[in-house]
Amino acid sequence: MELSQADINREIEAAARHPGGPQPKHDYPPYRSSVLRHPKQPPHLIDPESIELWAPAFGHRDVADDEADLTIQHAGTPIGERMVVAGRVLDGDGRPVAGQLVEVWQANAAGRYRHQRDQHPAPHDPNFTGVGRCITGADGSYRFQTIKPGPYPWRNHRNAWRPAHIHFSLFGLDFTQRVVTQMYFPGDPLFGYDPIYQSITDPKARELLIAQYDHDLTTPEWSTGYRWDIVLTGTHRTPLDTDEDVA
């Protein structure tokens, strides 16, 4: 039986009655694909050791500067609202995560991914792939020029739509800080209907995924701007370790 949005909304409300802290619940039935794919055993707590206290190193050898501009990857100009998303990557103690890899991917302005599995009958844009990479600056800063992605339907339930988002993949100062998440746009009317966004049951934590419109990042006659600062979990390394890194 195909579930309706009303069925999913009831499940979302039921799950919200047992808030699960600031991170998404692994066991979150409204997101149907999670049912057979979440561990049932609690995670095993350990102190990180050895390689876990380090992060892989990336650098300008890995990523060319123009990979941060998703609008210049083809002969023509992509269709849609040109926008910048910029911010800083910080660790849980407020220190910048410098020289680390940030990867993004997204749908085009019509809500279509350039991926074989995306069969949503919205147009592809021959001038937009939707993939970007950059290396953070010394102050943890990153900046992508792109076009605003559209919302799109998926098959979690009948008439399911994802709020517009950009996928972000982030590395920290140690292995335990690795995270992949999604950035959303302010005021999206689909937030309340989306079991992926709602899998984070703490409303304050969910809001951390929403970029803010920033007029200072908006460029005259060219592009709107959004700011999204990203705080990772705390590193398990001491500041001394990090200093040695730089030396």
Binding site: P24, S199, I200, V231
Partner: peptide
């Protein structure tokens, strides 16, 4: 500071 939540 609260860490950014992950997403699928």
């Amino acid at each position: 500071m609260t860490a950014v939540p992950g997403q699928t």
